[in-house]
Amino acid sequence: MPWLARQLVRLVVVLFCVTLLTYMIVNILPGDVAIVILGNLATPEDIAGLRADLGLDRPMLVRYFDWLGSALSGDLGRSYRNGEPVVQAIIDRLPVSLQLMVMAQVVALGIAIPVALLSVRRPGGLFDRISASAAFGFLAMPNFMLGIVLIYLFSVSFDLLPATGFTPMSEGLWDNLESMILPSLTLGLIEWTVLMRVLRSDLLTTLKEDFILLARAKGLPPWRVLLQHALRPSSFTLITILGLNIGGLIGGAVIVEQIFALPGVGRLLLGGIFNRDLILVQGTVAFIAVGFVVINFLVDMLYAVLDPRVRHVRFRS
């Protein structure tokens, strides 16, 4: 089977497993969306009536396959809580989460690559040791705490950036960026640590290769050896980690969106879980799962771009 077809089959299997598992997990959670909607004092008859209206009185698997059928035609259903179409809710929130994750990755890479390059110039040197300690320090810090620290530092103390909230790009690019700087720093300042350590380690291995020795022997300056010869072959693990870290980034985004009051997909999901809005949770998780698998699929493609040997092997198989 061609490589691309294999990837697609894998995508379908992953999605089926993820959606079925989510359906089961949310179903076994205690609580009931009918009570959430009708309030604490609803009569049992009213609760039963609403459950029937929402179709919640049918067996779980029947509901799941119903949902799956509609989802395959692009209809993720309507929120039990407020009747909003789930696809529309995701589309409305997606730009915020995407911007947050892209900016966080830019922050992470913007710190990780220069720090890794500077560290390997003298492994075990002062800069290397300081950067390693800083990386472990940031890695150990929970993002909800880092977020609050950044708010107090940059909003309250220095009065430079807004503490919370989101401004859409349609209301001005700078205003938009301003509202996203602290949230993306919160995610990026934790994310860079792993990227830096991985890249540093790969760079150290690459720097021992013969072609680096050759480049040095040719008299190329150290920065050119690092940037032009060592960086590219050292970035495979980095790219793999970037792809896999999307999962962690989405998890982090749920918390960061909550702290900074950003109207993103993470907050939509959290609200859905609190309200036992199964259909909203299901649609959002399915969407995130597709996103995760597609991004990792693109990461695999990127190997081929970076290394012709990978391309060759893939085309042969």
Partner: peptide
Amino acid sequence: PLPDSDARYAS
């Protein structure tokens, strides 16, 4: 809606 009470207070 500012769900985090510390961030709400900071705002």
